[in-house]
Computed example of a mutant assay.
Amino acid sequence: MKIISILGSPHGLKGNTAGLLRHVLAGAESEGAQTDVIILKGDTVLPCRGCDICHKKGRCVQNDDFESLKEQIAGADGLVLASPNYIFNVSAQLKAFMDRCCGVVHCMQFWGNYGASVVTSGGGGDEPIVDYMNHFLITTGIIPVGGVSAAMSEMPEGGFTNQVQEKARTLGRRLVEAISGSEVPSDINQLRNNFRERMKLLTSYRKEEWPYEYQYWKEHMGWNG
Rank of each mutant, 00 (worst) to 15 (best):
M1W: 01
M1S: 03
I4M: 04
L7H: 09
G8C: 11
G8W: 03
S9N: 10
P10K: 13
H11G: 03
K14I: 13
G15M: 10
G15K: 06
N16M: 10
T17P: 07
A18C: 14
L20K: 10
L21C: 13
L21Y: 11
V24D: 02
V24W: 02
A26V: 08
G27W: 02
E29H: 02
S30L: 07
E31K: 07
G32K: 12
G32I: 10
G32R: 04
Q34I: 15
D36G: 12
D36Q: 15
D36T: 15
G42V: 05
V45K: 01
L46V: 12
P47C: 05
C48Q: 12
G50M: 12
C51K: 11
D52R: 11
C54Q: 00
K56A: 15
K57T: 12
G58M: 06
G58H: 04
G58R: 01
R59L: 07
V61E: 15
Q62V: 12
N63D: 15
S68K: 10
L69T: 13
Q72I: 14
I73K: 09
A76C: 08
A76G: 02
D77H: 06
G78V: 06
L79A: 11
L81M: 10
L81W: 11
P84K: 01
Y86A: 07
V90H: 09
A92K: 09
K95T: 00
A96V: 07
F97G: 00
F97Y: 03
M98S: 07
C102A: 05
G103R: 02
V105K: 05
F110M: 10
F110W: 11
F110T: 03
W111N: 12
N113W: 04
Y114N: 05
Y114I: 12
A116S: 01
A116T: 00
V118I: 12
V119A: 00
V119M: 09
V119L: 07
G123E: 15
V130M: 08
M133I: 11
H135K: 13
L137W: 06
I138A: 10
I138D: 00
T140M: 02
T140V: 00
P144F: 10
P144M: 08
P144L: 05
A150W: 00
M152W: 03
S153T: 11
E154Y: 03
E157W: 00
T161G: 01
N162W: 10
Q163K: 13
V164W: 08
V164A: 04
Q165F: 01
Q165L: 10
Q165G: 08
K167W: 08
A168G: 05
R169A: 14
L171Y: 02
G172R: 08
G172I: 05
R174C: 07
V176S: 01
G181Y: 03
G181I: 01
S182P: 01
E183Q: 14
V184S: 04
V184M: 07
P185H: 14
S186E: 15
D187G: 08
I188Y: 10
N189I: 09
Q190H: 09
R192C: 06
N194E: 15
R196N: 05
E197A: 13
R198Q: 15
L201T: 15
L201W: 12
L202T: 04
L202N: 04
T203E: 04
Y205S: 07
K207T: 01
W210R: 04
Y212D: 15
Y216H: 11
M221L: 07
G222W: 03
G225L: 06
